[in-house]
Every structure is written in structure tokens, then in C-alpha cells.
Amino acid sequence: MSSRPLEEAMDRAERALLRIERAIERGAMHDGRDDKLRANVASAIAELDSIIKEAGR
């Protein structure tokens, strides 16, 4: 069984986590952008959910 799809899914998950971290950092620096930050985090979490589901196949 090839682990390549799992490796690719983990790479995408790592990139999503980095985007979350950057969004949090930007949000902490600019008050009043909570809605944008929440949307970014929600999007990243949705992507992580998708990656986890794909990796489980």
C-alpha cells in the first residue's frame, strides 16, 4: 500500500495550519478584523476535515 496519498494529505494539512497561524497573527495585530479571522480559520478547518476524510480512504 502506497503512503503517497497520506503524505500529500499531511502536507496539505501542514499548509492549512500555517495559514491558520498567519491569520491569527494578522488578527492579533489588527483589531476589528475578527470576522475575517473567523472566516479564515473556518475555511482552514473545513479544508483539514476534507484532508482527513481523503486520507482515510
Results as ranks from 00 to 15, higher is better:
M1G: 07
S3E: 13
S3Q: 14
S3H: 14
R4I: 14
R4S: 11
R4K: 07
E7F: 15
E8H: 15
A9F: 02
A9I: 05
A9H: 01
D11K: 15
D11P: 03
A13L: 14
A13P: 08
R15G: 08
R15L: 15
R15Y: 07
R15F: 12
L17T: 07
L17C: 14
L18S: 10
L18I: 14
L18Y: 09
L18N: 08
R19N: 08
I20E: 01
I20V: 15
I20C: 04
I20R: 00
R22H: 15
R22N: 11
A23K: 07
A23D: 02
I24T: 11
R26N: 10
R26M: 12
R26K: 11
A28E: 09
A28G: 07
A28R: 04
H30V: 05
R33I: 13
R33E: 09
D34V: 10
D35T: 12
K36I: 15
K36V: 15
R38S: 05
R38Y: 12
N40M: 03
N40C: 13
A42S: 09
A42L: 13
I45W: 04
A46S: 02
A46V: 09
E47W: 08
S50E: 11
S50P: 00
K53M: 11
E54V: 04
A55K: 00
G56L: 14
R57K: 15
R57A: 13
